[in-house]
Each structure stands twice: as C-alpha cells, then as structure tokens.
Simulated assay, not measured.
Amino acid sequence: MNVLLTGATGFLGTDIAERLAQKGHTVYTLIRNEAKANEWLKTLSSKTQKAVRFVFGDLMKPSGGLTENRITALSGEIDSVIHSAAYLSFDASERDRVFQINYEGTKELLHIADRLDVKTFLHVSTAYTLGMDNAGVESLYPPENRDFVNAYEESKCYAEHEVMAYQDRFHVAVLRPAIIVGNSETGEADSTFGLYGVMRAVELMKRHVQKKRQSTLDSFKIVISEEDKTHLVPVDYVADIITGALTNSSNGSIYNITNPSPPTNGMIMSAIRDGFNFKELEWIPFNETDQLSKLEQKMNEPLAVFEPYLNRTIDFADKNTKVLLERMHLNSLAMDRDMLDRIVSGFRNRHSEPERV
C-alpha cells in the first residue's frame, strides 16, 4: 500500500512511519524542508529509509503547497492518507496559526485526497476535542457554544467535522489520542510537551534545590491534583492503533485512544520523584497555592497551561477502540508503575537529537 503521511518527522509520525515500513508499505511523507527531512531520515531504520518517498508541500498553502503537476503525478498512486501533522500550541496569541494549520490545512489535504482518488483517510485528532466536558464520547462534538480549553482543541474539533463530511467519497476515520508519552518498553520519547513539561519543571526544581543544599530548604512544591487521573498513552500503543486502523477501522468511526485505567496524578508524581531521586519534591492541590514561595510560584508558572488537564478526571468511552483492538488482535493498554518508571527514565536518559520538523 502507498500511504501519504503528514507529520511524519514528528514524535508520533516517526513511529507511524516505522510501523508502515515494517508492514511493507511505501511511505510518502509531506515535507517542507529537505535538509531537515534528510537529517530525520538518518534516524530511521534502514528498511524505513528505503520505504520513504519525499513529497514537498506545505499545509499552510493552497493545495498543501503541491503543484498541479505533482498532484497529477500522484493521482491514482496514493492508496491512503494518514494525517498526523498538527500545530500544538496553547498560546492564545497563536490562535490564527493554530487554525490555519490544524483546520484549514486539513481542509486542503481532504481536497487533495479527493483529487488523488484515495481509498482511506485517517485523521489523527486529540481526545480533548471535548473541551471542558468530563465525559468523552466516540462521536463528533458540536463545536458551537462549547467551552474549549484552548484554540488547539477547538481547531481539531472543527477539523473532525470536515473529515466526517467526506465519508461518502472515501473511507474516513478519526483517531483521538490522549496525552502521548514515551515508548512503553524503552521510555524513549522526542517530546517537550504535556508530561514532559512537568518533568522539565521538576528537573529545574531539583537543580535549584541542589544549589541550596546548605540552606534550610527541605522541600519544593509543585501544583497538581493528586487524586485526579490523567490519560497517558505510550507512543508505540498509539502508532499501533493508527496503522492498524488503515485496514481495520469502520468508515465514519471515531476512536478514543485513551487509557482504560489511567494513573492518578499522585502515582505519576511518585514515579517522577523517585525517578529523579528528588525526595524534597512535594505536590499540593490547586486550591492551596498560597503555600508556595515566590520561587515556587515562578517555577510553577509554565505549568499553568496544563491545569485544565491536571485538575479533573475525564471518563472516555472507548467501545469503538476496543472493537478495533480485537480486530487487530491487540490488548488494551495496561499501564502500571513499572511502565511509568520506564517513561520517566526515558526522559532522564534522553540524548540530544536533531530537531524533527
């Protein structure tokens, strides 16, 4: 099968590309910068390198930046599209850019897919298109009059509606991962967002405490709701489901790729405290921030954007996903403390790598 993959050089996209190649598919990757894409290519297995074909384009431009000649050449050549490219930003000042890439870019890619006469279009969205609701369903959320946490969620919600409008032209499915973390076996990750933003803050806190060993500082507080649960999903689990959906999904279906037994934030923070050997680390709820010192307030500021995700427990329906897993002969995610420890260790042992574009 020939698969056009967007976002291939990203954290999740790289895992998807590797799995597609291992299954014998040819991977057409939409790229903007050839030099950076070539650097990314060097990080892949030899089999995947041979399976990759570059398609130069840009989702910020009409027709995805593809020329008419290129579209004509690819017509009838591409069997399926996996759209995993997205602009992940919670910065309100970037709302226009977020919508341009995540919403308008999806619309352009759908037009291209229609012209290429593809058979399947898989759209990688986010479990958090539900906005501020506490119950997630495997159907479209009406975007109007919905309270979204940020423009990223809102843009992805609108994009889902665009995708579903094409289900009479070709097979479509929406895959909604929750908070993606490192590989379930190795802990390896190429991400600075979500849980990795929290771990980065903890890392900085520990460095500060180490400098103050001779002072009276005996604890450092981070703000998080201990009893609430967070839906962490390993990148390999997500990539397995997405690639399996190419041949096992149902047309017009939505799949919540969430955690059937999400860990409590207390469990996550315990793994981080132990993994960093940071016995001074403590965590307090959001309604007790008056306990923070000025330094702790400053250290916690970058985590404020994650409060809506760390201060509530969301129950996600996953009936469709369970059926998909059964068709793929895969088990549902079973995240335990050992897996969390591996994920923390993966961050702690990370090495400097070329930036993925």
Score class of each variant (00 low, 15 high):
residue 350 R to V: 01
residue 340 L to K: 08
residue 44 L to A: 06
residue 338 D to N: 13
residue 130 L to M: 10
residue 52 V to K: 04
residue 227 E to Y: 02
residue 216 T to P: 01
residue 19 R to S: 05
residue 217 L to K: 12
residue 228 D to P: 02
residue 210 Q to M: 06
residue 320 N to R: 09
residue 166 Y to K: 12
residue 339 M to K: 13
residue 241 I to E: 10
residue 8 A to K: 01
residue 185 E to C: 01
residue 181 V to I: 14
residue 161 H to C: 04
residue 252 G to A: 14
residue 208 H to L: 12
residue 347 F to L: 07
residue 171 H to M: 12
residue 351 H to S: 11
residue 244 G to I: 11
residue 326 E to K: 14
residue 142 P to N: 12
residue 36 K to Q: 14
residue 144 E to F: 04
residue 337 R to L: 11
residue 92 A to E: 07
residue 41 L to S: 09
residue 298 K to R: 14
residue 170 F to Q: 11
residue 228 D to H: 09
residue 195 L to C: 07
residue 125 S to D: 07
residue 141 Y to G: 05
residue 17 A to S: 12
residue 342 R to P: 02
residue 25 H to I: 05
residue 73 A to Q: 15
residue 14 T to W: 03
residue 90 F to S: 03
residue 68 E to P: 03
residue 111 H to D: 09
residue 106 T to W: 03
residue 234 P to D: 12
residue 258 T to N: 15
residue 328 M to Q: 15
residue 170 F to N: 10
residue 65 G to L: 00
residue 127 A to H: 06
residue 21 A to L: 07
residue 59 L to Q: 00
residue 332 S to N: 14
residue 95 R to D: 00
residue 297 Q to N: 12
residue 303 L to E: 09
residue 169 R to Y: 06
residue 236 D to N: 15
residue 169 R to H: 13
residue 194 G to C: 02
residue 55 V to W: 06
residue 357 V to R: 07
residue 41 L to R: 14
residue 293 S to D: 12
residue 108 E to T: 10
residue 33 N to K: 04
residue 178 A to R: 10
residue 244 G to Q: 11
residue 34 E to C: 06
residue 235 V to I: 15
residue 214 Q to K: 13
residue 92 A to W: 00
residue 53 R to N: 07
residue 200 R to F: 08
residue 285 P to V: 07
residue 153 E to D: 15
residue 76 G to K: 02
residue 194 G to I: 02
residue 182 G to P: 05
residue 65 G to I: 09
residue 294 K to S: 12
residue 287 N to K: 13
residue 20 L to W: 04
residue 324 L to Q: 01
residue 190 D to E: 11
residue 282 E to L: 13
